[in-house]
Design a protein around this nucleic acid. Structure first.
Length: 446
DNA sequence: AAAACGGTCAACCGCGTTCCG
DNA sequence: TCGGAACGCGGTTGACCGTTT
């Protein structure tokens, strides 16, 4: 025989709670706790079912509930977590102290979902939609970058310091432009671009040894390289929006956060936060192309290397997590959990992912290229911060993107904040810590 | 001034999972 | 081991409120 019924539903009150009922519920729980929701209403003198009491307590009366508007940090964290976890509100709420799953769900449905839609981002898949409802097709490019940026930034936050908002790419190299296809699709872009005479004139590389014994190649772009980037951007934006173009051109100014290097200054930038890494000012065109590629092919992991490259920007890829130099994290839809295992070598990452990705969607096929050497590492960081600056600058000057009419009333938190570079910089600073097992980037040591 | 409209959010509903006798 | 109730979660509803027409 099973349990006794929790309550017969006849004669029980429904609907909004009165202050008197609230008081009874709070008083009872403060004195006795809520060991059994089934028995609680009777003991507390409430004509409610246990389910209703539990809901009222967890969503409203609990003393640690945070009231008031969601902060920008919270918004951005929700978006990031939703990209990874989907509509698992309780899991998302676990990373936002004081917020309930119900509250987050409501906020998502009434604010964040609309905002993403207006940006041309599918709120379910977190990818660019075919036809953004409000943005022009040209501006949808910005939305795509923004989507990728939201995910990439969150992962970067725990690795990068504010002064290292640069593409960093440490690869096996000899001083020439990197050639080892550690992240094949990215490298394909690189190889394509590096054959361009324009780029050859616009870049330089330096090489240094890392403490682990490996070597690094650093690529820096000069003002000509930055000009190529601007040309690309200009061709992808509405030519009628002169303020936007002017804003982009201002990126070339001495105060620009893009930091385009002149040839003689190529070695002048160093990262106090991570001296192991050379700063790599990657040519913006390559970043653009890579973002485009990732947008188009984010679901097509067919090899371990593909998995690595895809997980750089799309950790929400079904069961695929992301990999760092010391662990691998997998979002397993079957167990509805994030799962983490220390990573020693490539094959342990593959095994780790395989062990929790027990469905046919497992993307790991092999990692036979493992050299089991600890002296060689590849790092790909794709915080599109270069794009961040560009997009923020462009958005900041674009009335189209920041007017109330275009963004659909109050679905944006604050227009002036959105337009500010600080908006996204704050994300970098604040997102991340609640989900300690999340690792920012694809980093493979072998 | 009043009706219509839209946004918000607490609460309910239904379903899958967990637990217990 | 099994049946059934409790539990927990996500989706949906509807009352309320502010804004617009």
């Amino acid at each position: 025989m099973g349990r006794a019924p929790c309550c017969d539903k006849q004669g029980l009150k429904k609907g909004p709670w009165t202050p008197d009922e609230d008081q009874k519920l709070v008083a009872y729980i403060q004195r006795h706790g809520h060991g059994s929701w089934r028995a609680l209403p009777k003991h507390a003198g409430l004509l409610r079912c246990g389910k209703s009491c539990r809901l009222r307590w967890t969503n409203y009366l609990r003393p640690d509930i945070k009231r008031g508007r969601f902060s920008l940090d919270e918004e951005q964290l929700i978006i990031h977590l939703h990209a990874i976890l989907g509509n698992r509100w309780s899991a998302i709420a676990a990373h936002l102290p004081g917020r309930t799953d119900n509250e987050i769900k409501n906020y998502w449905n009434t604010h964040l979902k609309k905002r993403l839609l207006h940006m041309g981002i599918d709120p379910v898949t977190h990818k660019a939609t075919q036809s953004p409802p409000l943005l022009s097709s040209k501006l949808s490019h910005l939305a795509q970058w923004d989507s990728a940026r939201m995910e990439a930034e969150a992962r970067l936050a725990r690795r990068a310091s504010p002064d290292t908002f640069l593409r960093t790419w440490k690869a096996q190299g000899t001083g020439d432009l990197p050639s080892a296809p550690l992240v094949p699709s990215f490298m394909q872009n690189w190889e394509h671009l590096s054959s361009s005479p324009d780029l050859s004139r616009s870049t330089s590389t330096t090489t240094s040894s890392s403490p682990s014994g490996g070597s690094s190649s650093t690529l820096e772009f000069d003002s000509a390289g930055a000009a190529l980037l601007l040309n690309h951007l200009q061709s992808s934006m509405s030519s009628s929006n002169t303020s936007q173009l002017n804003q982009m051109e201002s990126l070339m100014s001495p105060t620009s956060t893009l930091h385009p290097f002149d040839g003689q200054d190529c070695s002048s930038y160093s990262s106090p936060a991570d001296t192991m890494m050379q700063q790599h000012h990657h040519h913006g065109e390559a970043v653009l192309q890579n973002c485009d590629r990732l947008m188009q092919n984010s679901n097509s992991c067919t090899s371990f290397q593909d998995l690595i490259s895809e997980s750089c920007v799309f950790p929400s890829n079904n069961n695929v997590g992301f990999v760092d130099h010391d662990s691998v994290v997998v979002n397993n839809p079957q167990s509805r959990s994030l799962w983490q295992q220390p990573l020693v070598q490539l094959d342990s990452a593959a095994a780790a992912i395989s062990s929790v990705s027990d469905g046919p969607s497992c993307s790991v096929l092999s990692c036979s290229e493992d050299e089991s050497s600890s002296s060689y590492g590849s790092v790909l960081q794709l915080p599109p911060v270069m794009l961040l600056d560009l997009v923020d600058s462009a958005m900041g000057s674009s009335n189209k993107l920041t007017s109330e009419a275009d963004v659909g009333g109050n679905c944006w938190p604050d227009v002036s904040q959105m337009a500010s570079k600080d908006y996204w910089s704050n994300m970098l600073k604040l997102v991340g810590p609640p989900c300690q097992e999340m690792l920012p980037l694809a980093v493979m040591e072998r």
